[in-house]
């Protein structure tokens, strides 16, 4: 029995890199033609969980809500985190969920994972629209203490506490690194700048060992995979998917743009008239800055 149970929630997302992504003529993402991959922030969350594996020999579980193909994201995340349990919450009813309804599914799923979770990790946000609500909403539903923008953490296994560093970036203020302490369980939304640090030889060796184990496990990921539909998960269909979503997407439209490309107007720096013109354009640019 591991002394620390860690869950990660992840997401299969469109791969926005050039060569993988396709757009429709109207500028919307062509989802059918675009390859999918484990989201970049999910990747960081998986790394954060793997840190717990290497440092504290944690037992890792991963959960995701999505269509059947989302199991590929689970496999990719297992490859990164050496997880021993993969959960896919997949049902037509879940489709179209907003973050509140998604959080309901994830919360129920996490409670069905083996062992009582001590830490749940989620990515900072998804790259295809969701802007980081799912993590904190799931945390609140679970009743876990939520810690956002975490860039580093240590666990005191004996006392069941965590100390973590959070990066606080606020408009007009210098960045602040806040060090906090909290009792387990906690829910951590990991900051994009997180990078696990292993600074002894033995930690690095353990890292290598578990990485290899992860690779083998991921090759046989199906034996770790459990798929849940709405009944198996035991959620109220009224609180998930579209019925459970307060928000809807009402319309999608093109953002009107001033100019399509930059066509430089060449001015002569030695001509006072030109300088005047340049400065008045600069002034205009600065005046047009606010949407009134």
């Amino acid at each position: 029995m591991s002394e620390l149970n860690v869950a990660v929630i992840i997401k299969l997302e469109p791969d926005f890199s050039e060569g993988s992504v396709s757009y429709n003529p109207d500028g919307t993402l062509n989802r059918a033609e675009t390859k999918n991959t484990l989201g970049p922030h999910s990747t960081i969350a998986a790394h954060a969980a793997f840190y717990a594996k290497v440092m504290y020999n944690a037992r890792i579980s991963i959960g995701t809500m999505g269509p059947p193909i989302a199991e590929s994201a689970l496999q990719m995340a297992q490859r990164l985190s050496d997880a021993e349990e993969l959960h896919l919450y997949s049902d037509r009813i879940f489709a179209g969920a907003d973050t509140l309804a998604t959080a309901e599914v994830l919360k129920t799923g996490i409670e069905k994972m083996q062992g009582k979770m001590d830490i749940v990790f989620s990515g900072h946000r998804a790259s295809d629209g969701e802007t980081g609500q799912t993590g904190p909403q799931t945390a609140w539903k679970l009743g876990f203490t939520f810690l956002g923008n975490v860039i580093d953490y240590k666990i005191d296994i004996q006392n069941r506490t965590i100390t973590a560093k959070r990066l606080v970036r606020l408009q007009g203020f210098s960045d602040v690194v806040e060090e906090i302490e909290a009792p387990l369980p906690v829910f951590i939304s990991i900051d994009p700048s997180y990078k696990p640090l292993f600074n002894t030889i033995s930690q690095r060796l353990a890292f290598g060992k578990f990485q290899k184990e992860a690779k083998i496990r991921a090759e046989n990921y199906k034996q770790y995979l459990k798929v849940f539909n709405v009944q198996q998960l035991g959620v109220d269909p009224k609180y998930v998917g579209l019925p459970g979503s307060p928000t809807i997407v009402y319309k999608v439209e093109r953002i009107p743009r001033g100019k399509a490309t930059r066509q430089a107007e060449v001015l002569d720096g030695s001509n006072p008239e030109h300088i005047r013109k340049a400065v008045s354009k600069m002034k205009e640019a600065l005046a047009a800055m606010v949407i009134k």
């Binding site: 757009y23 500028g27 790259s127 629209g129 997407v249 009402y250 319309k251 439209e253 093109r254 953002i255």
Partner: peptide, 10 residues
């Protein structure tokens, strides 16, 4: 995410 589109949410 593309920066081209506005999604209206209600």
């Amino acid at each position: 995410f593309s920066g081209f589109l506005w999604t209206t949410i209600l």
